[in-house]
């Protein structure tokens, strides 16, 4: 049976990738584009698939109100821009969304995010 990576892990990891680029928000379109690249990569190489929809973004905001908020078409981190706070948040995001992911999947998300972040 093919495996599925839950949408919220993809969304959480895209936010981690954004934080690494000193950004505290991501446009919905960016998340969707990352997911499109990722979908192909994961299915072809690892018999795993991802499935992020716009509704998933809203439900991730609902489920993790202490991490995220939605503003228009943008997913923002629910913290101030204070550097210390951002660092603490990143640590929590890693614990919530990255631990337990196969390293190859983390690498695939990183690769897809890089492509999309460079495009926008």
């Amino acid at each position: 049976m093919c495996r599925r990576i839950s949408a919220e892990y993809i969304i959480g990891n895209v936010l981690i990738e954004a934080l690494e680029r000193k950004k505290s928000f991501v446009d919905f379109d960016v998340i969707i584009k990352v997911d499109d690249f990722l979908y192909k990569e994961l299915l072809e190489k690892y018999d795993t698939f991802s499935k992020v929809d716009f509704e998933d973004i809203y439900s991730t905001v609902d489920n993790y109100p202490y991490f995220f908020k939605a503003k228009g078409n943008r997913l923002e981190l629910a913290v101030s821009q204070d550097e210390g706070e951002l660092e603490g948040l990143k640590e929590r995001l890693l614990r919530y969304f990255r631990i337990g992911l196969p390293k190859c999947v983390v690498e695939a998300i990183h690769k897809s995010s890089e492509m999309v972040f460079n495009m926008v």
Binding site: R3, R4, I5, S6, Y9, L94, R95, Y96, F97, R98, I99, G100, L101, P102, K103, C104, V105, V106
Partner: peptide, 30 residues
């Protein structure tokens, strides 16, 4: 949040076998 242990329904089964599942170098934060 461990994807290796979750299924389609997001339920997670934990028993003796779980140690073998996650005790690998290829998982982040195993």
């Amino acid at each position: 949040s461990n994807n290796e242990l979750t299924e389609m329904s997001k339920s997670i089964i934990v028993d003796e076998g779980t140690f073998y599942k996650i005790n690998r170098e290829d998982y982040y934060g195993a």
